[in-house]
Design a protein around this nucleic acid. Structure first.
Lengths: 360, 360
DNA sequence: CCCAATAATGACATCGGTGTCATGACATCG
DNA sequence: CGATGTCATGACACCGATGTCATTATTGGG
């Protein structure tokens, strides 16, 4: 590959002049500039980032660590889409900033993280973003002090800058909207207990009930997922069965996520119920491939992955430029409710009022 | 950040000796080695890839160009999952090879591709992989001769090394399996006509019919998708309605993809049909989130994205090492049929014989 | 016991750019 | 008209590693 010296020789100028043409950091005579540009084109010269970096000590690189690329476990799960959307949000900010994203994946095994960090440090990345597959607590090996780190979709005990979803508020907003539509008996099928989101969302569910003065009925809240994916359908079947046999059954099922809602559609229909005439269903995630494709389309809460990615990238850029503070606590990002045909309006809700709730 | 000189000073040796400890390319006395390692740890020294690269001219980087990260159009589509799986396959090969992946995305606009290529060349990537979102023909701007390029999920007129899915054979295998299960009236709901996959799969469908001596009935093949996502459900409704009103209706619907199959489930059920007792359904893609979650689980053909990524990375590594030929034509990768509960066995098929078909 | 091979280490040049400083040719101003 | 400033350009050192070659100490073979 041609170097700046080759170009200089071809254009009969000094290497430094070629450098000036490339960077425009000092005036260059028009004829000289043309000659240099011609030589560059003729030789197919592309400047070497490595050499440039040697002097400037600026790599222009941002490192992203994710498991999206090769998740081995949980085969039926969305498999990386959350991380994909997060990375998309990150790219949305990093791209225009002139920096380049380097993405590495853990290959599903957490032990590889230190290796990846080391590789990134060798490339002298200016900042690091760690992306988790679902909202969780993590503990990463320490990185250098010089290189800022932002956690996304996760947090740690050390108070590392983090961006997480507002699960509590999301569930609250959905349930509040259901109540506004006239639902009062609201069943809730949860995800696994250990998941951070589960407790937060349960709290949000109770918040909304309390606000509306509706008593909390534990019989309406059933676990719809096991630790292992085995026999999941049966668990869900049993949970739904228990709830529907209640003396005062619910008018709507809130599901732990859209995928669970997809299963619930099948189970309810196999029991001969019509959706949404006989029973309403709501999900969580706004996993559009499911939510928008299902018949009827699914009412759900958006997990604002893209927005979180945007926020994480912004925070990282602030930290790099020295503006941001390391200790500013986690950023909590809420996503909107998407109201679709899977929930009946039992009475016309005062939507304008709810919009205020949504936007405050 | 500490340099090799800092380490050398701290360990009271020459920089070159530190280099030797790092690379193990010449014998170093035990005491010296320990002293150097201690100094490295104390200073938190991480070697600079840029400086290393200056001498060796080996970047150890592989560039991947994809639209996965920020697809703007087609909101309901799988949105990048195919590319995600492809990248996973690529990573599976590149990671162990000791090289590092750099992933850049087009941000949905093809015009950015030349820019991305330039950025990669500045980083002196050793090879490039272009990943398309669906099987299609592309025409990329020329890259340097030194840097090998492999197209994945796409191909061009110039005969650039490429890896594409075997849509014809995939559809053939599925239909052959349906026939083996006793189905003879097989409806086929297609995707958009312009898509490469559509014509290939239609050919595969006819191949399988011909092999079994079943006459081709054009009335059973209906377009189930429009150019724009508007009114998609209506089109599908109409297509299904036309087919079901035939004097000799089908026993199974083959869908253009799993997402379409999800919609077809809803439509058939809203017509009061039971799945799979009254009618069978098959998909394409093996989009597991849908195929495994649906009730009943969906029979489908796998689009072997991961395998294609693996193959593309292998080919690229061959090209980089000089083994591979530039002109070896496209690699066509077939995926297996996944047989699940959405298709009834009308007669016990000779599966062992089919397995042979599958594995040859 | 001498010579050759090997171990262990360092000095120095080099990779491809860019920052610093110097230089000469004009242009402008008081 | 001389002093000063800007334009246009080049010489040279430097960033942080590593390849080459040189140097010294040690070991083994004949």
């Amino acid at each position: 590959m041609a170097t700046i010296y080759d170009v200089a020789k071809a254009a009969k100028v000094s290497p430094k002049t070629v450098s000036r043409v490339l960077n425009g950091d000092a005036p260059v005579g028009k004829e000289t500039r043309d000659a240099v540009n011609a030589a560059i084109a003729a030789l197919g010269y592309v400047p070497s980032n490595a050499a440039r970096m040697m002097r400037s000590n600026k790599s222009g690189l941002i490192g992203v660590i994710t498991g999206a690329i090769s998740v081995t476990s949980e085969p039926e799960q969305p498999a990386g889409l959350p991380e994909l959307l997060l990375v998309r949000g990150i790219q949305h900010i990093i791209g225009p900033s002139g920096k380049t994203l380097m993405i590495a994946d853990t290959g599903g095994s957490r032990e590889r993280v230190p290796d990846l960090i080391k590789t990134f440090l060798e490339h002298r990345v200016e900042g690091l973003i760690y992306v988790a597959e679902y909202h969780q607590k993590v503990s990463l090996p320490p990185v250098t002090d010089d290189t800022p780190l932002v956690l996304t979709n996760c947090f740690d005990d050390a108070g590392t800058p983090a961006v997480v979803p507002d699960d509590r508020r999301g569930q609250h907003d959905l349930v509040a909207r259901l109540i506004a539509a006239g639902h009062e008996r609201i069943a809730y099928l949860t995800l696994r207990e250990e998941i951070v989101a589960t407790s937060l969302r349960k709290a949000g569910y109770r918040d909304a009930l309390a606000e509306a003065g509706i008593p909390y009925d534990p019989a309406l809240v059933q676990r719809g997922e096991l630790d292992s994916p085995e026999g999941e359908t049966q668990v869900l079947w049993a949970a739904i069965d228990r709830i529907l046999r209640l003396p005062n059954p619910p008018t709507v099922f809130c599901c732990g996520n859209d995928r669970q809602a997809l299963k619930v559609y099948g189970i309810l229909r196999s029991r001969g119920m019509r959706l949404p005439e006989d029973i309403s269903v709501a999900g969580y995630d706004n996993y559009r491939l499911i939510a928008e494709t299902l018949l009827p389309p699914l009412t759900t809460v958006e997990l604002p992955y893209t927005a979180m990615g945007v926020r994480a990238a912004e925070r990282l850029l602030e930290l790099i430029s020295g503006e941001g503070r390391e200790d500013a606590g986690p950023d909590i990002v809420a996503g909107p409710v998407h109201w679709r045909g899977s929930v009946t309006e039992r009475r016309s809700p005062n939507v304008s009022q709810l919009k205020l709730v949504r936007e405050d």
